[in-house]
Design a protein around this nucleic acid. Structure first.
Length: 151
DNA sequence: GCCAACGTTGGC
DNA sequence: GCCAACGTTGGC
């Protein structure tokens, strides 16, 4: 089992949107970065715990806890020519973009970026490194435990 | 809206 | 295979 952090823009899917979904589950559509895709395709196991992170918004930070809720399968949005996630180089026969479903475990208080930065125990988190852009990153068991202790 | 950092593309 | 140009991300 591994721990993860997954970024979502609240304008796309917020923690409250997730809570309103049937089964509180959403396909993690729209990832178009190979490293992030490979984490979902190759490394994630059903049940892996996930920190749900709000990015590109007024108050970026950890908004809740979720978990991996499916095995990897193709992201439908890559096949929709009208959608913003369409990929003309992908095909049903040979899909390029693979994702998993993510299910809400619980909404938490928002642990904002400034608060995360205060803690030395979290200094190495990928999300806190300058220039970080990767939307899915592994979290160490120590980091996970520390963040849980903040809730 | 700005801009630094990074990934991708494409010409050579 | 290199690398400049370009596009995107994401915090501020």
């Amino acid at each position: 089992m591994r721990y993860w952090l997954m970024k979502s823009e609240p304008s796309e899917v917020s923690i409250d949107d997730l809570a309103r979904m049937p089964k509180k589950t959403v396909p993690w559509f729209g990832v178009r970065n190979y490293q992030a895709r490979n984490f979902m395709r190759d490394e994630m196991q059903v049940g892996d715990p996930v920190l749900f992170y709000h990015s590109s918004c007024e108050e970026p930070g950890i908004a809740g806890i979720a978990k991996v809720a499916s095995k990897p399968y193709p992201d439908d949005t890559q096949f929709d020519p009208k959608g913003k996630y369409f990929d003309p180089k992908s095909s049903r026969e040979n899909p390029r973009w693979i994702h998993v479903d993510v299910q809400l475990v619980k909404k938490t208080r928002l642990i904002g970026l400034p608060e995360l930065r205060e803690h030395k125990a979290l200094a190495d988190m990928r999300i806190l490194q300058r220039g970080n852009r990767l939307s899915i990153t592994p979290v160490t068991p120590e980091e996970w435990a520390f963040i849980e202790s903040l809730l």
